[in-house]
Amino acid sequence: MSEVLPLAAAPEAVERAPKRRHPALAALRRLFRHRLFLTGLFLFGIIAFLAAAAPWITTADPNRLSMRNKFLPPGGDYILGTDNFGRSLWSRVVWGAQLSVIIGISVVALNAVFGTLIGALAGYFRRVDNVLMRINDALMAFPAILLAIGVTAMLGPSTMNVILALGIVYVPRTARIVRASVIVLREMEYVQAAVAAGAGHWRILRHHILPNAMAPMIVQLSFLFAYAVLSEATLSFLGLGAVPPTPTWGNIMAEGRDFMRDAPWIIAIPGVALMLTVLGLNMLGDGLRDVLDPRLRIQQ
């Protein structure tokens, strides 16, 4: 008998060669082959770099007035020109990027914590589901930006309050998404198997439900980052965000609005920065969704 005869071996003699290891690593590998994701990552990466490096890459104080130098067009001494008070637009836009990123991260963090918590509780415990979801529905019944305007108008304009307002607006939406995946996961047979083994609720949520709910959550959070940046710009444009002269993209654009004809760069430059950020984040999110969403992967 030759070695090709398998009968003596265990039934898994025809076991496959080891393949890709951790599922997360496999996803990462697919991500780095995804062009849309890479483009988005690149765009957002630029803004994130500017935000992080703001103190080192800007020489002029963003709030230093210099009436001599007002309305300088881009090029020359001031690379992006100056505004109506002669402040360096480069400095203001870069510091504005930092504020946008800080607000984006904070809103995403709030959502990651409270959205997950509320969504997981509502999806897993049917008793609290109805109460939580009715509150959720009530909050979601307001148009997002109107609710944010209402909350900041109530709390007063400040960076902290913008974060709080955007948290109140978006946490219910995130909670809905988490709840939807938890409801599906709760019925999975591996969850049933854990129940049959005697696992408690906490263990089931931590080991079996939340890790598997992460993928749609990450996709949602990347889009949320874009909404947060956009909403913050809207709020400060309306005078409800960080108090001037704090440089935010919304503030710069609000001030530039009056000089749109004579100095269009004041409103255009933060506008372009905002657009690139949101575009980059949305591309990033689409890429993540392509790679992480199992429903899309099955269709391939």
Partner: peptide, 13 residues
Amino acid sequence: FRPRCAHAAPACA
């Protein structure tokens, strides 16, 4: 079918 076959011989490969 060779790896699962009880009658496989080297020639089958």
